[in-house]
Nucleic acid binder design. Structure first.
Lengths: 221, 221
DNA sequence: GCATTATTGCAGCGATCGTTGCGTTGACGC
DNA sequence: GCGTCAACGCAACGATCGCTGCAATAATGC
């Protein structure tokens, strides 16, 4: 995990019903051409979306506006991405991968405290927030793209602690205690949540897990 | 709280810089006319927004479409609501008021368990989810409108318990433990969360508050 | 280097959006 | 009841959106 193909080599929404895996390999066959220019266009469009979302009232984020900002013809944007929602989901996904290294401090508590702080800091960025909001607003389940990577990171830290022999909560439980408050406050309130608060979240999860042996329970949901 | 003017008598976004409170009283003066027709139009437009959000891919929610669905002329919608974001925020706010009675079972645990279940059930409704998503996506901080009423309800239950002499957490803490997971799962995942899971949330808050005397701490953030 | 072809640019089109001016309706105070 | 004026409907307009032909470019395999 967290080692997916780099941002410049992936094709966003290829309408051709081919197997994605074969495209990522070196011998991609005579089809698909994610070469220099396509990658450049892709990067430019993604950056344009982020920039426009940052300093624009959103909602006036249209395909032509994105194309103009990216220095690309609108037709290109229309053809490569089926809809604005797809584009937003792609931007969200590519932005939230490889942007945050999973900490490895040696203890679960240390890892979680560090990771929660990093995520909280990231959620302070207006750009990040704008992308999440826009992706959530779009129909094409762009919301999942925002957190799938974060869930993977969380799972990695829990797995590592489990390998150390510690009792760990489920990923769902950890997401409820850590990710949920982080994202909830960032999206719905004006309190970004400071470092102390974030640390308390991590501590409460670890402490609760230490006192009660709920980790072995099958867990609801 | 929860006793604001009924849905049919409020004016959404009156551009006139008057004091809102005077408008709600009976002797509203010679200005403002939230009478029968205006209220009818308002209700129709709100319903149209909800209906369109329910069975449309969203994002193709435009002012003319809303007007057509509401049986109202587009000009009316343009004039009464400054932007689509304002309209969405207004719809969100009016929908999340008076739609859920604050339970009063006699104990904080019972109140919270009941309330959490109700909120979880509400978040199962696709219409509700669509409104929240759309309001979040709009620029004009429509996100706050979705939860401000819920926060008030939560605070009311906590205040009642405090009057009973019990130790209660802060509203922020309760929101982190209860509301955050509810909304996070509803927005970002496909697991709506069942009744048992919701009850566990309420229990964890009450139990944690009972074991440790953190309630008297000034609490961060 | 050269042929192939995925990808982009270009021009132009229908459709719809968002706005404005003006006449009409109907809620409110008397 | 009647007059007043906020709120709505109507028609028309410019602007922009989203899409589709076809030509040009450049990445890929040989």
């Amino acid at each position: 995990m967290a080692t997916r193909a780099a941002d410049t080599t992936r094709s966003d929404a290829d309408p051709r019903p081919e197997t994605d895996t074969t495209l990522r390999t070196a011998h991609a066959g005579p089809r698909a051409r994610p070469g220099g220019r396509s990658a450049r266009v892709r990067t430019a469009v993604h950056r344009a979306v982020i920039e426009l979302l940052a300093d624009a009232p959103a909602e006036q984020l249209t395909m032509p506006a994105i194309a103009a900002r990216a220095g690309v013809h609108p037709t290109t944007v229309y053809r490569r991405w089926a809809s604005l929602g797809d584009l937003l989901a792609a931007v969200a996904e590519s932005r939230f991968t490889d942007d945050l290294v999973v900490p490895d401090t040696g203890s679960l508590r240390g890892d979680l405290r560090r990771w929660v702080t990093d995520v909280a800091t990231d959620l302070t960025d207006p750009e990040t927030l704008a992308i999440i909001r826009a992706a959530l607003g779009s129909s094409t389940g762009g919301g999942c793209a925002c957190i799938v990577e974060r869930r993977t990171q969380l799972g990695a830290m829990l797995d590592r602690e489990r390998d150390r022999g510690g009792v760990v909560p489920t990923v769902d439980r950890a997401a409820d205690v850590l990710m949920a408050p982080l994202y909830f406050r960032a999206l719905f309130t004006d309190q970004p949540g400071d470092a102390d608060w974030a640390h308390d979240l991590a501590d409460s999860l670890v402490d609760h897990c230490a006192t009660t042996a709920v980790a072995t329970r099958p867990s609801s949901a």
